[in-house]
């Protein structure tokens, strides 16, 4: 095998490998978390975060504006503190609210931000004043069942 032939094939091999990686990078995957330089941090306290995970998206009006970077338990108030990194170009008023929503009935959970009307905006490190927790399906179901059961009991008692 001549050297130029080998070089040709090895070059082609490298090109194919690079093309495959590029395909995986551009067509198959997203670049994930926004670059650290152009983000600012906000926190929100929730009574219950349900199944929210680190790296879950933060959306406002359905548009992804950031990612959840950390979730921890505040042991003073026993609430979950969710830290998120938001894109620098999106600013939210100080009376915005954060809630934990589910995409679809059984889809992944994300943080939704509904903007308020205040002129002043939240800066880095600030936290949302108004939050609403995740809807936990089991609680809803059990509440429904309990009320139903209580109603049934009442009717039997009456009889």
């Amino acid at each position: 095998m001549k050297r130029t032939t080998i070089d040709f094939w090895v070059g082609l091999f490298a090109l194919m490998g690079a093309a495959a990686l590029l395909f995986l990078a551009l067509k198959v995957s997203n670049q994930g978390a926004l670059p650290a330089s152009s983000t600012y941090t906000l926190t929100a306290n929730f009574e219950n975060i349900g199944g929210l995970k680190v790296r879950a998206p933060v959306k406002s009006a359905g548009v992804v504006v950031g990612r959840v970077t950390a979730i921890e338990l505040d042991t003073e108030r026993y609430m979950a503190r969710v830290t998120m990194a938001l894109d620098e170009q999106y600013r939210f008023s100080r009376d915005s609210s954060a809630e934990i929503l589910t995409s679809g009935l059984l889809g992944e959970q994300y943080v939704g931000i509904a903007s308020g009307a205040d002129d002043k905006t939240l800066g880095s490190g600030d936290s949302f004043k108004i939050t609403s927790s995740a809807i936990v399906l089991e609680q809803i179901i059990s509440r429904f069942l309990f009320s139903k059961a209580a109603g049934d009991d009442n009717t039997t008692m009456e009889k």
Partner: peptide
């Protein structure tokens, strides 16, 4: 097909870890 794939596959976490 492509957009859902792209939305769910993370370059750093999935592709690079595979590499």
């Amino acid at each position: 097909f492509w957009s859902q794939m792209q939305g769910a596959v993370d370059f750093r976490l999935d592709v690079m870890n595979g590499v």
